[in-house]
Design a protein around this nucleic acid. Structure first.
Length: 266
DNA sequence: CTTAATGTTCCCCA
DNA sequence: TTGGGGAACATTAA
């Protein structure tokens, strides 16, 4: 469900609401969605104060006092919602934090690909740099010395962290780069264009509150708006907005991949 | 009934 | 060691 813009939207919304709030109680915790599963989460969370809510890649990080904290990965269908205590329980609710406030923080996830992970167990070293602050020099370094196709590279969280299937396609279309172009075959100018497209698309998507294809909603349950600005994603057979050529669809690393064969030549 | 869906991880193989 | 393919995880909607 959520890539960098959707996660950023959620973090920006819930941050001011839950910061400095105390966790009064924990309920509906599904132990097969937390890591470590054998930890006493109720004991660890109850009485703690939330110091901050931040984003790193697609992770929502909760810093706590007195313990280090935890992070939530939303997987494909995860939602983090701030709702009043009286709000009726949605199906697939896997964690409720009762706060020192007239509302609760709830984690809902039908497919259960999401995860709630205690901080002691994180290994941040493997995550690549944030795309919004990536310099062209850094990007050149990342793409150098590999003949791997550019789209799989953009999806590789160990190289660049936060981009998923929607934004990889949207970025490549705006940069006019074919998704199967070997990374090392890109010219310096193309890498520069790619970096600009990456920042433009992600910033614009954040401004629109993310993309809602099916499941994504923000912390108040509202859908995003960036799907209206998608130029290729899920537009198979429809005319390219730039040149009119029908948008093509292929499968790359088992993911649907949309591109314009005219604007993004091999 | 079949297919595909915003993600990650693991196994198999070249 | 690298990376692609495919499966697995689980649910829903078209």
């Amino acid at each position: 469900m959520p890539e960098l813009p959707e996660v950023q939207t959620i973090v920006s919304m819930i941050g001011p609401l839950v910061r400095n709030r105390r966790i009064l109680g924990v309920s509906h915790l599904r132990t097969d969605m937390v890591k470590p599963a054998d930890m006493d989460w109720g004991l660890a969370l109850t009485g703690s104060r939330i110091l901050s809510v931040t984003r790193r890649a697609k992770r929502i990080i909760f810093r706590l006092d007195p313990y280090s904290g935890f992070y939530i990965h939303l997987g494909m269908t995860g939602q983090l919602r701030v709702v009043s205590v009286s709000e009726r329980l949605m199906p697939h609710t896997h964690l409720i934090l009762n706060l020192d406030a007239p509302f609760q923080l709830r984690f809902i996830d039908p497919r259960r690909f999401g995860k709630i992970i205690w901080m002691d167990t994180i290994d941040d070293t493997k995550l690549g740099p944030e795309p919004l602050t990536l310099t062209t020099e850094q990007l050149i370094q990342i793409l150098r010395n590999t003949s791997r196709a550019i789209k799989p590279l953009l999806l590789d969280q160990n190289r660049i962290a936060g981009i998923g299937n929607i934004y990889a396609d949207e970025i490549l279309h705006r940069a006019r780069i074919h998704p199967q172009t070997p990374a090392c075959a890109l010219t310096q100018l193309q890498v520069r264009t790619l970096n600009q497209a990456m920042k433009r698309v992600l910033h614009q998507a954040i401004r629109q509150g993310g993309s809602t294809i099916r499941d994504y909603v923000d912390a108040e349950g509202k859908t995003g708006g960036f799907q209206r600005l998608h130029r290729v994603y899920q537009r198979f057979g429809l005319p390219c907005f730039r040149c009119g050529t029908p948008v093509q669809k292929i499968i790359l690393i088992s993911r649907s991949t949309y591109f314009c064969p005219t604007c993004q030549p091999e």
